[in-house]
Design a protein around this nucleic acid. Structure first.
Lengths: 207, 207
DNA sequence: CTGAACTCGGACACCACTGTCTGATACCGT
DNA sequence: ACGGTATCAGACAGTGGTGTCCGAGTTCAG
């Protein structure tokens, strides 16, 4: 049902280039607007996109559909960033650090989306995150199996911690609470500290 | 200005007992309602409180005032819980664990409040949290000074991590993602792991 | 260049919520 | 039991958002 990131409006026909541009502007504007205010109005999004409100409804039948579209797109982007970090390779602690380093800014852009989608119930949340979890969970399992990560921590909890801290770091950077250049180091140190077993801490390829 | 948790409506007079009851019901209902939906309507809050909508406006001139009141009350409760955990005493790592153990459920109830208040700007957020920070920050500073906590982590970031993980744990418990009896242990293990320096990990009075 | 696709600008009905007000009724303090 | 408080029930205007529609103008594709 939500498999199409944007609706072609007319089904049989091809879509024109300016329509593509509009859709792209709207999607970008929606991410921006919702980031600064999770319940930004359609009018506000249209304004940012440099488009009239009705134009949005040409491509997205409802506000809900628009949010579904940007969520879909965000997940795709996140998945890509995570895959690029190659979580299946190398020492778990190193892989984790690599993954955080490569993806935290990308993922962090969407903390508002998380907030919005989390209002749609946990099962929806879980379903939406499935692709991301598929990539990260094996790494955590692997780390716990090898003894690199703390076996006492439930894997689901570790995933929560991961996502939550990424979003927190991103938020703190945008509000100015945390210096941008310190953020990545702090984030990595915090997460690896939380996950890694004491005896494994020294063995990391730190810096 | 927001120093009165509830407005007496008439200034010179004493307030009647049923009015006290109403105010209490409204406050409780507001916390509940806003926890399940951060933008619950006044009507919904009134319904939960077993009160007519107009009654709310007798005690709180506006929605904003009501939210300010429950925020004030939540902060007071949190401060109390933290103070009871006596953060100034004992080894930093132990004190931290004690503090988490004593307060995570109390604090966790209010994750919706955090979400709501964070929309009012970072400076407002900072001002509101001042009493909490006053209690926790010295412990973190002390731990970093003694070498028990990682000195590379900015103190503000540590505070963020603390609050964020408490709220995450509470949320995961209410959604059923995390078992209630596991949550506290996982939370403490995660936070102490994140903050404590490797050589200090073993020295804790674990269990 | 021409027709089709698209955007614009503005209007529209609809809905949910906020905050105010009323008169009638129940409750509490003394 | 009396008088002042408080609640109730429901109506009210005002506001701001959503989704739909239309006619006129613009831009793209072949």
């Amino acid at each position: 049902m939500a498999s199409t990131p944007n609706q072609p409006a007319t089904r049989g026909r091809r879509r024109r280039a300016d329509a593509d541009r509009s859709v792209a502007s709207i999607l970008d504007a929606a991410v921006d607007a919702l980031a600064s205010d999770p319940e930004a109005s359609m009018a506000e999004i249209a304004r940012r996109a440099g488009v009239v409100r009705a134009t949005i409804y040409v491509h997205f039948p409802t506000r809900e559909a628009l949010i579904a579209a940007i969520t879909h797109r965000a997940i795709a982007e996140a998945t890509e960033a995570l895959r690029a970090a190659d979580p299946a390779h190398g020492e778990p602690a190193d892989a984790l650090a690599r993954l955080l380093s490569a993806s935290w800014q990308t993922l962090g852009r969407y903390h508002a989306l998380v907030q919005i989608n989390s209002r749609l119930g946990p099962e929806h949340m879980h379903a939406v995150h499935q692709p991301v979890l598929r990539l990260v969970r094996p790494l955590l399992k692997r780390g716990q199996a090898s003894g690199a990560f703390n076996r006492d921590l439930p894997t689901d909890w570790m995933l929560t911690v991961l996502l939550e801290l990424i979003h927190a770091a991103s938020r703190d950077v945008t509000t100015g609470t945390l210096a941008a250049d310190t953020a990545e180091r702090a984030l990595i140190a915090t997460v690896t500290g939380a996950f890694c077993t004491p005896d494994q801490r020294g063995e990391m390829t730190t810096r």
